[in-house]
Amino acid sequence: MSQSTNKHFEILDGMRGVAAIIVVAFHILEAFALGDRKSQIINHGYLAVDFFFVLSGFVIGYAYDNRWDKMTLGGFFKRRIIRLQPMVIMGSIIGAATFYLQASPELYANLASTEVKDVIIVMLIGFTMIPVGRSFDVRGWGEMYPLNGPGWTLFFEYIAYTLYALILRRLPNIILMILAGIAAGFLIHLSVTADTGTVAGGWSLDPEQLKVGMIRLSYPFLSGLLLSRFMKRTHIKHSFLISSILMALVLSLPRLGGDTNWINGLYEALVIIFIFPLIVYLGANGEIKNEKARKFAKFLGDISYPIYITHYAFIYMYTAFVFNEVLPEKQNYGLAAVYGVLTFVVSILVAYLSVKFYDEPLRKWWSKKWLKS
């Protein structure tokens, strides 16, 4: 695939936004399924993370593979930091600011006993993307970023960028294909042997969860990187619509196999191995000709990363409300629906305001300050 023109993939931006929006809806509905995740509506919403890893591998390969004769390692990492860190900081700030509004003694066991200074310390550590262990588990969920749970995916993104910059970019395609095949084997093994029948996991700083996170990262990132190198450009009509429908279907499909866990696990592995690269392929080979659809895709792309990295503070609050006021007596479902819609809208609004009045200006300033060309 020619990389001489630095083509911008507006459909892939839109697809990232579609996946991020589905993640928000998934997390809102997850509040009602804490005790029985098999009944979760939008049951496979967590697989959006694996799609993000595929997309990341593709974009990194396309954007940087042919630039290393003019770019240093420092320049590469500066660009990644400029792209990601402003919203990482914002996500930590919002998580800290709303922390005590998430009160639920049974749900968040450590919240009530956590002092303000500890919240501030965890927030400042979160700015740096350094993960924390149980000594700083201010919530009690065992998250490596307890003020902003989804931060764990950025931790693995940075691992992927480091491996790419130091090793993967230098490897011939045949070696990358062998590594991707091995990674796919590990992914299938994880998915069909997991006690939960899912690939979900990776958010805790312990050996088992780190292993899950690395397995979830490895094949998707490698497959995206290979796709960026092998893909032959073509033109696929209606690819944005087709990709969006396909994404919605695979993420919202009910759990498969009942109590036979390996069936659901195998489904998830096959989605990650085949469907997500297909969606990226469709998106990279499409074109949006309708101006309204183009603006909508741009809007989705603009808010995709900000909404993903800031929405979970509001999810903590909403989940606490459902756990405290709805589930015990099985009441207030109407109010829960109103609050759920409000949580969804607020998440989008905060993301939009953050990107327009904070993220884009700060990234522009950092770029001028840090990058000479």
Rank of each mutant, 00 (worst) to 15 (best):
G340Y: 07
E208I: 12
T128H: 09
L124Q: 07
S104V: 05
L154S: 02
F32N: 11
K289Y: 04
I315N: 04
K364G: 05
A165R: 01
L210W: 08
T260D: 09
A313H: 01
F58Q: 02
Y358T: 00
G181Q: 04
I22S: 08
H311N: 11
V322A: 11
N324L: 12
I121T: 14
A20L: 08
F53Q: 05
Y64C: 03
P86R: 06
W141H: 14
T98A: 09
Q102D: 11
T234V: 15
T114E: 09
A284I: 12
L249T: 15
D50R: 06
Q331K: 15
A297H: 10
V18L: 07
I42W: 09
K369I: 10
W366Q: 14
L227Q: 02
Y164W: 05
N43L: 00
F344M: 07
R294I: 01
F156P: 02
M71K: 06
A313G: 12
V122I: 12
L179C: 02
I81C: 07
E287K: 15
V59Q: 02
R134D: 12
L47C: 03
I41F: 13
F52T: 01
S228Y: 05
V49D: 02
D359I: 13
S218G: 08
A337R: 12
L29N: 10
S191Q: 05
L205W: 12
V49I: 11
L266C: 04
D69I: 09
L249V: 15
L107R: 10
T319S: 14
F155L: 06
V24I: 15
G35T: 08
K289G: 13
K292A: 12
I28V: 15
Y158W: 15
M317F: 13
R80F: 04
L282M: 13
E157Q: 10
A184E: 02
V192P: 03
V18R: 03
